[in-house]
């Protein structure tokens, strides 16, 4: 069913725009040019984070830490491979993307772990980054309870990812 999703979205947008007599082709090329700017902004942080996360993960330090807290993870039905993802997701988007990339390489995108990590990545955003960027832009220094509300949303996002991936696959 979800393989219909993207083609239908594209179909509907183009249908609507052509009924409105928009030059669809020009709009498309103008819009896609913006991806140059985006990738330029994204590239340095991706480079920095992928190298750092891979060095960190390959060193084996995380396995040592995870084996200590294994019993708690079992209670949450959280496979220990995705724990780094759950911890890092709210802190850094590019490093959790790097971890997702690792999981997809090692376990495959259609494995249970691959799907769980994909859903976790897709279902919440980088709380620390969002707060820094948006509050910073208007000079807010006292952020009050916003971090707690944001992190609570992340926690629920991660727990419901586990629940729904178990239900669906």
């Amino acid at each position: 069913m979800s393989s219909f999703f993207i083609p239908m979205l594209i179909f509907l947008v183009i249908l609507y725009a052509s009924l409105k007599k928009i030059n669809v082709y020009d709009s498309f090329t103008e819009g896609s040019t913006e991806s140059f700017g985006m990738i330029l902004k994204l590239f340095p942080s991706m480079l920095a984070m992928i190298v750092a996360v891979n060095v960190f993960l390959k060193s084996g330090i995380l396995e040592a830490f995870i084996s200590l807290i294994e019993p708690i993870l079992k209670l949450l039905y959280l496979p220990s491979e995705v724990l780094p993802m759950a911890i890092i997701r709210p802190i850094s988007g590019s490093s959790s993307l790097a971890i997702l990339n690792n999981i997809l390489t090692n376990h495959g995108p259609d494995s249970f772990l691959g799907r769980l990590a994909s859903v976790m990545q897709g279902s919440t955003d980088t709380t620390f980054y969002v707060l820094t960027l948006y509050f910073g832009s208007v000079g807010i220094k006292k952020i009050r309870y916003s971090l707690w509300a944001g992190l609570f949303a992340d926690l629920i996002g991660i727990l419901s990812s586990i629940l729904f991936v178990h239900l669906f696959f």
Binding site: S2, G122, A149, G157, S161
Partner: peptide, 19 residues
């Protein structure tokens, strides 16, 4: 690649409501 869409949408809706 898109078979994770529905669980993702459900999880993000839960996260937003909880937030």
């Amino acid at each position: 690649p898109t078979d994770i869409l529905i669980p993702t949408i459900l999880a993000t809706v839960c996260a937003t409501i909880a937030g």
